[in-house]
Design a protein around this nucleic acid. Sequence first.
DNA 1: TACATATTTTCGTTATCACAAAAAAATTCT
DNA 2: AGAATTTTTTTGTGATAACGAAAATATGTA
Lengths: 242, 242
Amino acid sequence: MTKNKNNGNGLQKTVFAKLYADLRRGRYKPGEQLSGRGLAKDMGASLTPVRESIQRLEALGAIEITKTGSLRIPKLSTAEIEQLYNLRMLVEGQAAAEAAEKATPETIQILEEIEEQAAKAFANRELGQISTLNEKFHMQLYQLSNNKPLLDTINMLWLRSGPLLPAIYAFYQVITNHLENSSEAENFHHTVLNALRERNPETARKATQADIRDGLKMYKSLAVDLKQAMGGLTGGADPKCD
Amino acid sequence: MTKNKNNGNGLQKTVFAKLYADLRRGRYKPGEQLSGRGLAKDMGASLTPVRESIQRLEALGAIEITKTGSLRIPKLSTAEIEQLYNLRMLVEGQAAAEAAEKATPETIQILEEIEEQAAKAFANRELGQISTLNEKFHMQLYQLSNNKPLLDTINMLWLRSGPLLPAIYAFYQVITNHLENSSEAENFHHTVLNALRERNPETARKATQADIRDGLKMYKSLAVDLKQAMGGLTGGADPKCD
DNA sequence: TACATATTTTCGTTATCACAAAAAAATTCT
DNA sequence: AGAATTTTTTTGTGATAACGAAAATATGTA
């Protein structure tokens, strides 16, 4: 019931921004069920702006509306997850390549500073910070492409893979605890930065693709590890469909 | 006021499907203004399902909601149009490549039949049919990839380029009137079909990319031709922004 | 006639109501 | 107790009303 301040700047936008951010940072689990009225109560708004936001999110593939009208977070199959990551490699690689063509010393420095903060966060094992700064680095990089259709597509794919993040960062936690050597995970970003300095699009593309491939590898290892330990971690509800 | 039958299967879906189809087939011009209440009247529905549909379409980038809340079809800059087509080449090329890996004699035959009808439509200069069958060929091809994130992305890009179609087909009409030789335009599809038969992903990718590049070339030629004849044909309203 | 002002209309936004279907809970029956 | 059935609650859907802002039209002025 925590009544949100209506800042007068469009309640619908506020509601959407909140749901979007929560989905993207992985606050909802695959298969999790939502209720429009519940969300409205939570955000101190009426149903109308919530429903409009839900329509947006469904159009983006971030939530599902079943035949009966109930709402849930999509539960991606293994194949779909690979397809999602392969598509990310394709389009984010392209964005990185275009970024390398347009990067300037100033824009490169912004990325370097993000990476510096990320290194500190990594040294301190601050997972939340690492995650935030990783996203910041990627998005700042892609924005250099100045390519709206491409950026929209990338944002859609990140939104869709939001619910997978907790699993990935669970894996990340495991390996950082066992592995003192932080070189692997961060090297891709350094390679990208070098590519920008040298205006080398193809190196930027390949390093970005390797970074994403690495994320998928982490997810898959974790899924395998846990599947043989317990009963699969895909997340939320039962496999009932409709 | 032509009251639509509520088929009981979700008025919102009906409204969205109609708007989506009209946008995609280029019934709306870039810069054109829409009004929620007007659309509601047109479709015999209340505001609610219309507004929800509008939210979906804006999330997909098919319409714009300005700061004051008014609705319009986005007017793409030349740069954005090139970015849109470049992205289409990237992702549709990928879809075609994956389709080539999964094609079967049966699925290939479906494509051949579409292409056969398209050849007839081309011989008869039936522009509407050509357009419909061209889209049908592309979508049927991409669906062979069985890749949902990829297909969703492609559909988003086709939706966004819908308002450009009239200009492209205007050009198409011009050249088909001057050019008896129909080989150019259709050869890409034949190359794709051959690539599917040979299970050659890279050829399918390249032919698809060439097809799309050709569409962009047509658009650009037309834009140049008309710009030097009159005052540019980008479409709808004045360049006022907000 | 050209421009500024005032009035009217249209429009987007949000909340709320009524309805039916679905989900959950309670009850009954075996 | 366990399964089937009924009752209650929750949910999504669609229409509508109220409100203020934006746009269009009309009016008045220089």
